[in-house]
Simulated scan of single mutants.
Amino acid sequence: MNAQRRRADATENRARIVEAARELVADGGEVMLNAVAKKAGVGQGTLYRHFPTRDDLFAEVYRQDVEELVDAAPALVAEYDPLSALSAWFDRLVAYARVKRGVLAAVEAGVRRDLADHSHGPIGDAVTTLLEAGKADGTIRSDVDARDVVLLVGYLSRLDDGEWDGRARRLLDVVLDGLRRGA
């Protein structure tokens, strides 16, 4: 096997490991690394070559989720009217928040703080992109900013697992309604 193919295989294995960990974290409960390796279809040695520690793996899951959430904002603004873009972004936020809860529960306190500290700025910037589009077309209240929205949606971390599916998106709809101009 040539070096280029080995690199491609390694990249594919890494992506499968991260996706398997994301899925298991989103399902709730404690995530064992051997379960991640099995779900990804790799051996534990392969998992540990890519992610020497549990914290390394879950930090990568978290970083990728933040990146995808942040990158979605300008793409959604380009594709949809501002309120629809914000609503679609909130759909992604629900999925992100569910994974975030599991990741933050699985990592050490120092890693948890570091991940949270590094995500606030980019997520705030994404919210600003969405709000500014709505303010520009007159559909979003002019008196709100990204910090207001981040504080309001922070309640997602307070939901119990049993009420997540029935309540998370509905509560974000309440926030969305409150952001509308004239609300």
Rank of each mutant, 00 (worst) to 15 (best):
N2E: 10
Q4N: 09
T11D: 13
T11F: 01
E12T: 14
E12M: 08
N13H: 10
N13D: 13
R14W: 03
A15E: 13
A15P: 08
V18P: 03
A20L: 13
R22A: 15
A26K: 08
A26S: 15
D27H: 07
G28N: 05
G29L: 11
E30C: 07
V31Y: 00
M32P: 02
L33P: 02
L33E: 09
A35C: 06
V36T: 08
A40V: 03
V42R: 01
G43V: 05
G43K: 04
G45V: 04
Y48S: 07
Y48E: 07
R49Y: 02
H50N: 15
F51H: 02
P52H: 05
P52L: 01
T53K: 03
D56P: 01
D56M: 07
L57K: 04
F58P: 06
F58L: 12
A59V: 09
E60A: 13
E60N: 09
Y62L: 07
R63H: 05
D65C: 10
E67R: 11
E68I: 15
E68T: 15
V70G: 03
D71L: 11
A72N: 14
A73E: 11
A73Q: 13
A75F: 05
L76M: 15
V77M: 12
A78S: 15
A78K: 13
A78N: 14
E79F: 04
E79N: 08
Y80K: 14
D81C: 12
P82M: 10
L83M: 14
S84G: 15
A85E: 09
A88L: 09
A88V: 11
F90Q: 14
R92W: 02
R92Q: 13
R92Y: 04
V94T: 05
Y96C: 07
A97Q: 12
A97M: 10
R101F: 02
G102E: 06
G110E: 11
V111N: 03
R112S: 15
D114E: 13
D114I: 08
D117I: 11
H118E: 12
S119D: 11
G124T: 03
V127H: 00
V127D: 00
T128N: 04
T128G: 05
T129G: 03
T129I: 14
T129L: 06
L131I: 15
A133S: 14
G134P: 06
K135W: 06
K135H: 12
D137H: 10
D137G: 14
G138S: 11
T139Y: 06
R141M: 13
D143F: 07
D143V: 14
V144E: 03
A146G: 13
A146E: 10
R147C: 01
D148W: 02
V149Y: 00
V149Q: 01
L151N: 05
L151K: 01
L151D: 07
L152I: 05
G154T: 06
G154C: 00
Y155F: 14
L156C: 01
S157K: 03
R158E: 12
D160W: 03
E163M: 12
E163W: 07
W164M: 13
W164V: 07
G166Y: 00
G166N: 01
R167Y: 00
R167L: 08
A168V: 03
A168P: 01
R170Y: 06
R170A: 15
V175H: 02
V175N: 00
D177R: 12
G178D: 05
G178K: 07
R181G: 08
